[in-house]
């Protein structure tokens, strides 16, 4: 039941994140089909990178000799996405753009803190274990920043 709740949080956070980002893309994309395609692919990427994040953290800890149950890691990873439920607020112009960064960073901090508690390691240790997966998870979503020049050409 707890696992279901955790995965439900992750799913809802993902949907809200991707749907909000799709709205903000709509302004620069202009084409509905491109937007829909974007929504579907982003949803897939979000789920895949979330799984990859949890798995990578579990692997890192496992190889360092901290045997933590995979189920527990997934559980904490799901709940760490709780702040993203506020993602629709990022529609607010300018303020929302900064809020996006804050929410994503909060997810990282929450997961780092919970992994530190679960594996009984230093917070710095878990911060390093979590950073790679987090970067992948959010930089993929954030790749429009990398294609910033495209939007400015509008």
């Amino acid at each position: 039941m707890t696992l279901l709740l955790s995965l439900g949080t992750l799913w809802l956070a993902g949907i809200l994140t991707v749907a909000t980002e799709t709205f903000t893309h709509l302004i620069s994309e202009k084409s509905w089909t491109a937007v829909l395609r974007g929504f579907l692919s982003e949803s897939l990427i979000f789920s895949a990178t979330a799984v990859a994040w949890g798995t990578s953290v579990w692997f890192i800890l496992y190889f360092q000799g901290f045997a933590v149950p995979f189920r527990q890691v997934v559980l904490l990873m799901g709940f760490s996405h709780f702040p993203l439920l506020a993602y629709p607020l990022t529609i607010i112009p300018s303020i929302g753009y900064r809020l996006e960064q804050i929410l994503r960073f909060t997810v990282y901090l929450l997961f780092t803190a919970s992994v530190s508690w679960l594996a009984e390691v230093e917070i710095i240790h878990s911060a390093f274990a979590c950073i790679g997966g987090w970067a992948l998870h959010f930089l993929v979503v954030e790749r429009r920043i990398l294609s910033w020049s495209e939007t400015t050409r509008l």
Partner: peptide
């Protein structure tokens, strides 16, 4: 002010 924030937002501003 809402429109000013839109103009200054890197997501909406270019449009």
């Amino acid at each position: 002010i809402g429109q000013l924030l839109v103009s200054a937002d890197p997501r909406y501003g270019p449009s």
